[in-house]
Structure formats: structure tokens, C-alpha cells
Design a protein around this nucleic acid. Sequence first.
DNA 1: CGACTTTGACCCGCGC
DNA 2: GCGCGGGTCAAAGTCG
Length: 155
Amino acid sequence: MPDFELSDYLMLDDDDTYSSQSMASLEKGVAAATEFSGATSKNSSIKCKKGVGVRVAFRMKSELEVIDDGYKWRKYGKKSIKNCPNPRNYYKCSTGGCDVKKRIERDINDESYVITTYDGVHNHETPSMLYYNQMPLMAPNAWTLQPPSSSSSST
DNA sequence: CGACTTTGACCCGCGC
DNA sequence: GCGCGGGTCAAAGTCG
């Protein structure tokens, strides 16, 4: 588990535009993350122009491009983008019945940053979410939590 | 043996 | 109509 920090979260609006919010309110970004993952649409600003699903982009500082948000992602493609020196990775939720896609690419300005774009809404809770529910407290960054089975560095 | 990752090829949409 | 770019699928290989 590398130490990555949520730098910016981009809310792609229905006008194909996105609002790049500074990390002035990280909780808000996490809230957005909870929004799309929990399918709780109290904020209708997060939606795709096609109306077929939600599209949310996050930019976070991480050494690894793959962010374990609790879901199981299966890589189904890799593509080198002309405008980007780094290839873009395509992931799909491997959970049955879930058709959420995730695009991951490195920031062209800062390779230390990774841009993760979620496309769609999970029709199920994150497997780890079940684990969260058993926790006495809900950490604001719980979506970054991982089960103790994976690299438990609790020393 | 099953699941997942990797890489190339193919297809679709958009712009010129 | 053609070319380019982007996105997705499929087959093979590897690891657990």
C-alpha cells in the first residue's frame, strides 16, 4: 500500500466539462467517491452527459497506477495515448452484474500523479464495504482501506 | 483448474 | 471517403 494522497477530484458534468476542485475539501472528494460507489445521488452534479451512468475522475498522488478502492478490477486493455507519454489502462469491475469501467492514466504534467476515471455506477456494495460496516467507526478515507488479508502492515 | 494479466488486432466515431 | 485516435474483445500465458 503506497502512500498516495487525493490531490484533485474532477466531476465531469453533463456538459462534458469538469470542475477541478483543489484539495481544499478532501472530504468532499471522498464524499463524491462515496456517491458514485454507493449510488446515492444526493448530488446530481455527477452524471454523464449520456445519462447512461456516472463519470468521475480523480487525480491522486501514487506510485502505482492501480488504486485499490475495494472493488475487484480486471484489466481488459491498454492503450498508448498520443497526447500522453504514458499508456492508459482500462479496467472493468469483475463483479458479476456490475458493468463499471475504470480508466487509469498518469498525469502528463506529473508522473507522480495518477488520474483515475470511473465510468458507471456499481450496482452492488464494495466487497470491502461489507468489511467497513463491521467497523465501529467509518473512516473518511475508508474507500482506501483494504482487508487485513492483503499486506497487513499492522505492526 | 480457475482467474487474471498481457498484447495485438479489430471496430467505431470524428475530423479533414 | 480516408485517416487517426480511442476503446473493446479475444487468445495465450502465468500465477495462485
